[in-house]
């Protein structure tokens, strides 16, 4: 069975980028995660992670809350409703492509 190759182009590129895919995957399994956890799990540098988080926040896929634990700054990230929907669609698209190629 084969599919229209244009289906590949429909994949959400905001999520498809490997680093952002890791971030979204982690956030999809939990309610929220802080910057340190995401950094340790993804293996990204602080600057790189910050940049990807900003892009995801601009796309309204995640929400970022800056707070403090004692005197330590804390950045809490959450997958938004839009982000969860986009991730589900992305997984369905990918599954469709894999199943039909």
């Amino acid at each position: 069975m084969s599919i229209d190759p244009r289906k590949f182009a429909d994949v959400d590129r905001m999520i498809h980028e490997p680093a952002r895919l890791m971030i979204i995957t982690i956030l999809s399994a939990v309610d929220s995660a802080d910057f340190l956890y995401l950094q340790r799990e993804t293996g990204l540098t602080k600057g790189n992670l910050s940049s990807h988080l900003s892009k995801l926040e601009d796309a309204e896929y995640i929400t970022i809350e800056k707070t403090y634990r004692g005197k330590i700054p804390l950045t809490i990230c959450k997958l938004s409703g839009n982000g969860r929907k986009a991730f589900t669609e992305y997984r369905d698209q990918l599954k469709y492509i894999v199943d039909n190629t």
Binding site: V30, S32, A33, D34, F35, L36, Y37, Q39, R69, L74
Partner: peptide, 9 residues
């Protein structure tokens, strides 16, 4: 949390 980060389940 200070060592490996925080997760809210």
């Amino acid at each position: 949390y200070p060592r490996t980060g925080y997760i809210g389940f």
